[in-house]
Simulated scan of single mutants.
Amino acid sequence: MTYALITGASKGIGKSIAEELAAKGKNLLLVSRSEETLNELRLSLIQRYNVHVAYLAIDLSAAEAPQLVSNWCTSNNYSIDVLVNNAGYGLWGPFEKVSLESHQEMLQLNMLTVVQLTYALLPELKKHASSYILNVASTAAYQAVPTLSLYAASKSFVLLFTRGIRLELEGTGVSVSCLCPGPTSTDFVTRAGMSLAIQKKSDTFSMTSEAVARIGVRGMYNHKAEIIPGLLNKIIVAATAWLPKYVTEKIANDLYKK
């Protein structure tokens, strides 16, 4: 019996990816902070899809969390052939107005947890003839985003890390993909502390988490390097390749300023 391990699985894109995989008959390991929410999701997925589901409630922004997740998998003999590094969040505002501690906690989750968990579980993933890693980044990875400067930088890191190890792992049976959604109907904007005006702008262009998850899972199984859901998001990312950086960064600045 094999499992897909999903971080940040209790809500948003992570929850929708769990739903999408369960609908395909995939057994799941759900990792997030909220035990009550995880247990409710576990029971719902078991009832609707008749799959095996286990969960671990843990704060993934803690430096020791990835090793604890790996230990949990080992002690329970969970065989993992899909790893979805989805957990992450943003902090909105001028760089110097957000506490350094808050910046560091976000960077730990968005980058180091992804690296540490991938490193810890890669030997297990390589045991299978075919396995998958899906790292969740953002269209923010393709240009600097003022007032979301460290978030965008962290997602750029995830994208480049994904592309690098994708080539390293060619021929091993491990396929590595990066999902780069644009605005999505989750609590990202609220969690980041953005203004109501920005929330309204975001809602205009948002995709549902279900649509993003469906495209992401399909792209993962089709071995795509980068998965960009939605035509508008594809156009925006393509534009960053040929427009001067100042132009795309100015557009991002205008979108996310107060």
Rank of each mutant, 00 (worst) to 15 (best):
S175W: 08
V176S: 08
T139K: 02
T190D: 13
N233D: 01
F205S: 01
E170W: 07
V136R: 02
A197G: 01
L231I: 12
A153S: 15
G219A: 10
Q143C: 11
G230A: 07
L179T: 07
T190F: 05
Q143R: 15
F161I: 13
I236F: 08
S177F: 09
N233K: 05
V174R: 11
R218N: 13
N135W: 05
E168Y: 12
V217Q: 03
K234I: 02
R163E: 15
Q143H: 13
V212R: 08
T208W: 00
Y151D: 02
I236P: 04
G171F: 14
T190M: 03
S206H: 03
I235G: 02
Y151H: 10
T204R: 13
G193R: 01
L179M: 12
H223S: 14
L150E: 07
R191M: 01
F157H: 13
K224H: 07
L167P: 04
K201S: 05
L159C: 05
V176F: 03
S195T: 06
N233H: 06
G230Q: 01
I215Y: 06
L148E: 02
K155H: 14
S149N: 11
S154P: 07
A141G: 03
S175F: 13
A137C: 11
L160H: 15
Y151P: 03
S154C: 10
C180P: 03
I228Y: 06
T190N: 11
C178D: 05
A153H: 15
A140M: 14
Y221T: 06
P181K: 10
N233M: 00
S154Q: 05
E210C: 01
G193D: 07
L148Q: 12
A141F: 09
G216W: 03
R191V: 14
E170V: 01
C180Q: 04
S149I: 08
K201M: 01
F157Q: 11
A153F: 11
F161G: 08
A225P: 00
Y151Q: 12
A197H: 11
Y142T: 07
C180L: 03
Q199S: 03
L196M: 11
R166N: 14
V212W: 14
T172V: 14
L160N: 15
T190I: 04
F161S: 14
T204N: 04
S149F: 04
S202E: 10
A141M: 01
V189P: 00
A153W: 13
H223N: 15
A225M: 13
V217W: 07
G193N: 06
F188I: 03
L169M: 09
T147F: 14
T147V: 09
Q199H: 01
G216A: 05
A140N: 09
C178W: 00
N233T: 06
L231E: 00
E170N: 11
K224S: 11
N222G: 00
T147M: 13
T190A: 13
T172W: 09
S206Y: 01
R166K: 15
G193L: 03
P229Y: 02
R163L: 15
R163Y: 12
A144M: 10
T162L: 12
S195C: 06
I227F: 09
P146A: 08
